[in-house]
Design a protein around this nucleic acid. Structure first.
Length: 203
DNA sequence: TGCCAGGCCCTCTTTAGGGCCTT
């Protein structure tokens, strides 16, 4: 069983990957036994235009990307850095489609599943004010990771959140930290059935 | 022609619609 999880975050110039919508930055935080043991970050110049709204949100400008490495370099490095480590992200359906799209441009395909801290936090922390990554980080007093909406800062924040969720699950349901496959399983069952699911896994 | 995300979740649901969340 792998105890390591690669928590990733993309900054992009839009919501859905395609010819005019690409990743503009990737951040990866490698999580192991509740600690971040490795980091990767790179801006990505895919030759796309960043609209002003996205520039204000992320702080990543068209000028900043001018000298950034192309996707073929940055994504190949990121894919090597992650290897076959299981993946996680906040609202993983978003990052998964960009990860898959950018890898496909290199002729590569994802082999591992994504755990999702958004789906897990909705189940484990239903009492949170909302389930935005920034809100959860403030509400849980997670350690500051830097400027929000930059890829590595958000990847580290999601990694801290995942640690918190694993700790909460351990506290509630047993001493053993939930591994990646259990996290993926839990995000598919209702909150009421998490205990039942974990008991079945243990059995 | 005109428009343009999409997966997940909840409920006033399931022959659907709207909100959340990511950039």
């Amino acid at each position: 069983m792998s105890r390591r999880i690669a928590v990733i975050d993309f900054e992009t110039n839009g919501a859905s990957p395609g010819r005019d919508c690409r990743a503009t930055e990737i951040g990866v935080a490698l999580l192991e036994d509740g600690r971040i043991v490795g980091r990767y970050q790179s801006l990505i110049n895919a030759g796309v235009w960043i609209p002003p709204m996205i520039e204000r949100l992320t702080g990543i400008s068209n000028v900043m990307l001018r000298d950034a490495p192309p996707p073929a370099v940055a994504m190949a490095e990121a894919a090597r850095f992650v290897g076959d480590t299981p993946l996680a992200a906040h609202n993983a359906s978003f990052d998964r489609k960009f990860w898959d799209y950018e890898l496909a441009q290199l002729g590569l395909a994802r082999k591992q599943d994504f755990a999702c801290t958004l789906l897990l936090s909705r189940r484990v922390l239903p009492q949170a004010p909302d389930h935005k990554l920034g809100t959860l980080a403030r509400w849980l007093s997670l350690p500051d990771t830097g400027r929000a909406h930059r890829a590595l800062a958000d990847a580290e924040m999601a990694a801290q959140l995942l640690c918190h969720l694993q700790g909460e699950l351990s506290r509630r349901y047993g001493a053993r930290l939930a591994d990646h496959s259990q996290l993926c399983g839990m995000q598919k069952v209702s909150a009421a059935k998490i205990s039942q699911y974990l008991q079945a896994q243990a059995g």
